[in-house]
Amino acid sequence: MLYVKNLHKSYQSGNKSYNVLKGIDLSVADQEFVAVMGPSGSGKSTLLNCISCYIPFEQGTITLGGQELNGLDENGLAKIRNEKLGFVFQDFMLLDGLTMRENILVPGIIRGKADKKAEKLADQLLTLFGIEHIASKYPADVSGGERQRTAVARSLLNQPLLILADEPTGNLDSKSSRSVIESFENARTKLGTSIFMVTHDSFAASFCDRVILLKDGVVYDSLEAEPGHREGSRGAFQDRLLDAIRKMSSMES
């Protein structure tokens, strides 16, 4: 469903150029929940921002649902972001002047389809993520976990192929993190969405089907969970993850 091939990205600081992504290859299958982990500066967020086309990249191809994203004009990219991708940011990025329900409806409004059907779907998402009681509240009036679940609900309104989440649990306590991860799990199982999540949190990553380890701008390793691990062996998968991260870190030192 998502294919990334030979992706390169560099940043310019003064006269110096820093290569952040050095030829990334990866893919995400339908209804797959994939996490990307790695130390700071490994290129995780840059990778996510390139996939979402928030930032331009120099080389490589990104294909989403059979459509190549390179070369699309601004309107084409906007359409992809609105209809085929959903976004969840670390700092939520909810609009302060709108209620939680209205925030969820924003992608529909942009699409020009904030109709009864969209409103019904927004209400269903509110219920699905257990935030119906804050539907008419404003972002400033609710907790971080509730804000992030609202952001997850917003990312699902246009029923995208893929949700891109950048450190979605980074600003949350463990209870809120758990509820956000459950929201992703619900989105995947009940709405059939794929999720691509960048995280530092091994607990959050242990719920994924697959974890890609990134180091110095290249894919260092990819760990696959055993089927049904969420029910039984999630803890074992988290241990495997921590081992792999430790190994990666020891190689660095």
Partner: peptide
């Protein structure tokens, strides 16, 4: 935020 959610500049 609106641009990230798919609203084009135009």
């Amino acid at each position: 935020t609106l641009m990230a959610l798919g609203a084009s500049g135009r």
